[in-house]
Amino acid sequence: MSRTDTYDDTYTESQVIMTSVRIIAPFTLTYGMFMSLHGADTPGGSFQGGAIIGVTVLMLAFAFGIEPTRRWLKNSFVVGLVTAGVAIFIGTGLATIALGGNFLEYDAFVETFGIAHYWGMEAIEVGGVALIVAGVVITLFFATAAGFTPDGRGEESYQAEVTDDD
């Protein structure tokens, strides 16, 4: 009665695990984004938020297989995520310089736009940290999952460079 014999070619994760991942995923993704957006309020908020977003993707990858998830989540999208994170980070920093402050001196915003200190922080937290962390977690995972074949090396080192900016 053992029915595993012919399933060898298509090992799928147990239905139980798969379904619970399906159920949990939207909640964790929402929660991750919530934490990223409220990162300025709590210690380390955005870092954790980004980590949760990344982990949600990894969870889906475990349940549905890595290849389908990789296809679902385009490689360029993930790289774009990290790049956008870095761009926002640097952009905010340079904007403060342009407004006559130091790098990431949020007070410049307060004087120029009349908005609170909080929003500069928010931009850095959401854009800078959360996107980068999520992107790096996902990228590292997929890079590891792909194995260290010589032809994959170029791409990995490129991604590593991007993440070094953080």
């Binding site: 399906r22 995923a25 939207p26 993704l29 929402t30 984004m33 919530f34 957006l37 889906l60 549905f64």
Partner: peptide, 12 residues
């Protein structure tokens, strides 16, 4: 956020 979540995960 809800828009992003539903767009990306509704069919999952």
């Amino acid at each position: 956020v809800a828009g992003i979540v539903s767009a990306s995960l509704a069919n999952v």
